[in-house]
Design a protein around this nucleic acid. Structure first.
Lengths: 136, 136
DNA sequence: GTGCGTGCAAAACCTTTGCACATCG
DNA sequence: CGATGTGCAAAGGTTTTGCACGCAC
């Protein structure tokens, strides 16, 4: 199902802005925040507002098109990969990368310990990436 | 080493405000944010300002007296347990609890995959606690 | 007495909201 | 044409900062 169908199926209208935001994040591995998506779209969509990026992201998150990440920063980042997975951020260059760590066993263990019914989890690491280590 | 020595050793002055904030968080298992520490101190320290709570927490985090948590909310929470450990938050009652999950193996695996030198990690779960499940 | 700490208010930052206008269906 | 979406500006929530005064040392 493409993004237009995805929106329509969920009762949302298909607009140029929504398609543009989708293009900006789809297969975008940089884990951008709202501001950088906004800046990325500025040249081709000068009328696009930051508020529209936020509103669109809220919808995309709701219908499962993006995932919202907290990587120890003030702003949220967005990931087109919607399956929950770990992230790692470099404190020097601020890039965020994926990490493959199985999350199911962690969720089961947390549920066992606490009796919670778990909806979601967030696993992120912070450190210095290889490139930045070499630059020192 | 008590908090007064801890402050002096690190070149900070010992003030009634800092001691009061320390009392408020030491062995406080509720993982409070700045606002709730401020409110907790209000009755006994009416002149204490929220800015002082923030400034004090910044120092405490720097000298290893508290740990800053991000549990998927807008505000930061503070934990007197400074050894990195996992947390779980209930979306209904907003309480945060500790979870015992070994983090060293996760850090080693993330370092192996990415070549990062890891300084810190954050593992948090979100769901519905046992009490809130039963209330439904 | 000197320099650091406090409290206030203002600013900064990210995100959300209200509203008039535009546009999708 | 009606309901939903957009863009702007303003407001909201959290955290930081500038500055005059006060207190630790």
């Amino acid at each position: 199902m493409n993004i237009a169908e995805m929106l329509r199926t969920n009762g949302y209208k298909v607009t140029p802005q929504r398609l543009a935001v989708y293009e900006a994040i789809n297969h975008n591995t940089t884990h951008p925040n709202a501001e950088s998506i906004y800046k990325q779209l500025q040249p081709n969509y000068p009328s696009m507002s930051l508020a529209t990026v936020y509103k669109t992201m809220e919808i995309f998150a709701k219908i499962g098109v993006v995932r919202v990440l907290q990587c120890g920063e003030d702003s949220h980042r967005y990931d087109y990969k919607t399956a929950s997975h770990a992230h790692i951020r470099c404190v020097k260059c601020n890039q965020v990368f994926d990490v493959n760590i199985e999350q199911e066993p962690l969720i089961r263990e947390a549920e066992r310990q606490t009796g919670f019914s778990i909806d979601d989890m967030n696993l992120s690491f912070i450190g210095v990436c290889k490139d930045c280590q070499e630059k020192e």
